[in-house]
Amino acid sequence: MDFLNAIIVLFNFTVIPALAYGSQLALGAIFVTLIYAVLRFANFATGDMMSFGTMFAVILTYYFQSLGFGLGVLPTALLTIPFAILMMILYMLIIDKFVFSYYRIKKSPPVQFAMVSVGVMFVTQALIRIIIGPSDRRFLDGEKFIIKATEFKEMTGLAEGITLKSTQAITIIVTLIVVSIMFWFLNRTKTGTSMRAYSDNEDLALLSGIDPKRVVLITWVIAGILATIGGVLYGLDKSYRPFVYFNNMLPIFAAAIVGGIGNPFGAFLGGYVIAFAEIFVTYAYKRFISYLLPEHLEPDSLLQLLSTDYKFAVSFSILVIVLLIRPSGIFKGKVI
C-alpha cells in the first residue's frame, strides 16, 4: 500500500506535470528545428512568435465569451485556435516577405539571419505589448479538472491522490495528435518528402524541380500551426504573459539542440527530456521516500537536489553538457 502511495505521489507531482510541460516545449522545439532545417537559422523570435499567435487566441476567446459561444466543458480557446493560426501564418508570411526573404535570396550567413531574427523579436514584442499589453491574463474556462485528488482518494482508498487538470489532458492529447499528423505529413506525403529533401540538399532539390518558394511557404504554415498551438496550450495550462513566453524560448532552444537540431523527431523527444530533467531534479522527494522507508528512518530535509528557483538552470546545464559531449544532439541532428 505504501509502495502504491509512493508511486502515486511521484506520478502526480512529477510525471503528469512533466508530460504536459514537455508537450508544450516539444511543439516549440519542433517549430525551432523546422525553421532551422529548412530556412537555416536559429530563430530568436521563437518565444515571441508563439506569444503572438496566443495573443489572438486570447483576444478571440474574450470575444467569443462575450458572444456566448463556447464548447461547454472544454475551453473556448480551442475554438479560437484555427483563427489564431490563420492570423499567425499571415504575420509570419508578411515578416518572411519583408524581412527574411531578402537574406535568403542573398544567401546570407546564418549569423546574419540570427541577428535579423532579433530585430523581428523586438518588433513582435512591441506589437504584442501595444495590442494586448504586458499583463498576466487567464483565458481558461470550462471544466477545470478531470480527476480531483479527493475523488481519487475516495475511489481508491489510498492516502495519496491524483489530480489531472483538464488543461494537462488537453495538452498531451492535442500534442500527440498534432505531432502525429505532422510526422505523417513529413514522411509519407510528396510535399513532406520534398521539404526534407530541400532541407538536406538545397541545390539538388532545385535541380529536381522542387519549388523553393513553396517549401518556404509550407514551412511557415507548419511553423504557424505549431507555434500557435504550443503557445495556446501553455497559456491555458499556466497563463498568458508575454514576458514568460519570451523566456520560454530558452528551454525550447535547449530542447531543440538536445534532440539534435534540424531533426523534428529529436526535438519532440528533446522537449520531454528537458521537462522531465527540470522537474525530477527540482522535485522534493521527501514525501515519496517517506512512504518507502520505515518510520524511524524518515528524512528531515526536503531531499531536493536543487531548489525550484533553478528550474531553467537545469535545462540549460543539460544543454551545455550535450553540446560538450555530443554536439549533434542525443538523436543526431545536422552536423555542427
Partner: peptide, 8 residues
C-alpha cells in the same frame, strides 16, 4: 561551437 550555437 558554430556561430549560432555559440550565441545560444
Amino acid at each position: 561551437l558554430r556561430a549560432d550555437y555559440l550565441a545560444i
